[in-house]
């Protein structure tokens, strides 16, 4: 707050501090990545707008049904602003979007931002839990597998993971429903309980959807990390140096190989996180979860393009942020980048 009242004094006291912080490689990286994100987000929104415009039929027709007269449709189009040329509508949308207003749903008449907020929380919980579960299991399994490559544990875990990777998530979801909801009746197939209502109930209702998303991720991370660890252990000279010091294999694995492998893992997790938020659509659909994917699917079916547009934008923002986060973590952890040699 002193900055606001006595800017001159503050600048005197720590003239280089802020400048140094802004000029630090980390800050430069954030700035650069955020700047790079702007054209991506613009591109995505233009592309969405354009693509949605290609689709014959609009919300007015959809709302009024097939029996509506052309006059009725035209009146509603005017009310909804659908009669204006595309670029006008896009610029109008963009103008309010930058202020955080994503418009009102053509179908429900509700503000899109609030609608998306609730949905995003559900999808976020789903994805977040899936990541925690999958990474929490994959890291120890991969470490154990890489500790003695070619042994029983390694072989079994690799077989399980390639099998798991070959199961499409909708297939897995349906099989989970068939087994745990229909046959064993352990978990509900549908019936989402909000977190605000009951934490236990919420987790119970989330168990199957989280499992459906987490299992393929677990398989993927296990394979990725195990493969990278083994590559490091067998192919990298610094591992030989470490072994030549006389330290134990556990230390070589954890302090050396895992440390180096974790960078690759972070990147992959960041990329996945970005794409996954949009990838929950089917699981949300099967388990009737009120997430953002389901919202988008509904909006697609009702031609509620304002909502679709907003959903796509949210997906893109999440993807950009997740990648940025991964890059930042990477930069914080990897000295080669931290010290700006690359």
């Amino acid at each position: 707050m002193t900055v606001a009242t006595r800017p001159g004094a503050d600048a005197d006291r720590a003239p280089g501090r802020l400048a140094a912080l802004l000029a630090s490689p980390g800050a430069r990286l954030v700035g650069k990545r955020l700047l790079m994100a702007v054209p991506i987000l613009l591109g995505v929104s233009v592309l969405t707008f354009w693509v949605l415009n290609l689709i014959p039929g609009n919300a007015a027709q959809q709302l009024l049904g097939p029996e509506a007269t052309p006059e009725q449709v035209r009146t509603l189009e005017q009310q909804l602003g659908l009669d204006q040329p595309g670029y006008v509508r896009y610029l109008g949308w963009l103008g309010s979007a930058v202020t955080g207003d994503l418009g009102t749903s053509l179908v429900s008449g509700q503000p899109v931002t609030s609608q998306i907020g609730e949905r995003l929380a559900v999808s976020g919980e789903l994805v977040g839990l899936a990541f925690v579960v999958s990474l929490g299991l994959a890291i120890p399994v991969a470490l154990l597998a890489a500790y003695k490559p070619g042994r029983m544990f390694d072989r079994v875990s690799m077989l399980v993971s390639i099998t798991g990777l070959s199961v499409a998530n909708y297939v897995l979801a349906l099989l989970l429903v068939l087994l745990f909801a229909v046959e064993l009746a352990l978990f509900p197939a549908i019936g989402f309980v909000p977190l605000s209502e009951s934490v236990a109930g919420n987790l119970h209702s989330m168990a199957l959807p989280v499992a459906a998303i987490a299992f393929p991720l677990f398989c993927f991370y296990t394979r990725f990390l195990r493969g990278d660890l083994v590559d490091q252990l067998q192919g990298e000279d610094y591992v030989t140096t470490a072994r030549a010091k006389g330290i134990g294999p556990g230390q070589v694995l954890l302090r050396h190989a895992f440390r180096n492998s974790s960078f690759g893992l972070i990147t992959v997790v960041g990329l996945n996180l970005g794409t996954l938020i949009g990838g929950t659509v089917i699981v949300e659909q099967i388990f009737a979860l009120p997430g953002i994917g389901q919202l988008m699917l509904q909006a697609i079916n009702t031609r509620d393009f304002v909502v679709v547009q907003a959903c796509v934008l949210v997906f893109a923002i999440v993807a950009v942020l997740a990648n940025l986060l991964a890059d930042l973590l990477y930069a914080v952890l990897d000295p080669r980048i931290r010290y700006g040699s690359r």
């Binding site: 054209p39 591109g43 969405t48 689709i55 039929g57 949009g278 697609i300 679709v308």
Partner: peptide, 22 residues
């Protein structure tokens, strides 16, 4: 790479729908 980034950030569902519908 920027153009491809846009494509990657774009949900396949929307594009497929648009293609399917138009």
């Amino acid at each position: 790479m920027r153009v491809l980034d846009v494509l990657i950030a774009f949900p396949s569902l929307v594009l497929t729908l648009a293609v399917a519908q138009s």
